[in-house]
């Protein structure tokens, strides 16, 4: 057991709450919000992982995760609006 493991557990609990909301809905927009928030949470998770292991590989994952989850959220938002992605 390591102090950083506590932080990881906390983040996982947050992710579980987030997933609960994604399951409960009730509207598609709620689920889009959860995907967005979960993406940001996971960037924090990667940061803690890299602090725990001392390797910056995880932060590189977090960095690309941040960008990809942003693009994903925008795509979801556009889809909810019923528009094309190049609009």
């Amino acid at each position: 057991m390591n102090a950083m493991d506590l932080l990881l557990a906390g983040l996982l609990l947050g992710a579980a709450l987030c997933l609960w909301r994604a399951r409960a809905g009730p509207t598609p927009a709620d689920r889009a919000v959860c995907v967005d928030i979960l993406g940001i949470l996971m960037v924090g998770f990667c940061a803690v992982l890299s602090a725990r292991t001392g390797r910056d590989l995880y932060l590189a994952v977090g960095l690309s995760w941040a960008l990809l989850s942003f693009v994903g959220s925008l795509a979801l938002a556009k889809h909810l609006e019923g528009r094309r992605f190049d609009d």
Binding site: A32, S73, L76, K78
Partner: peptide, 8 residues
Amino acid sequence: AAHAIARA
């Protein structure tokens, strides 16, 4: 992203 989702 928050703004885009809120508007959508």
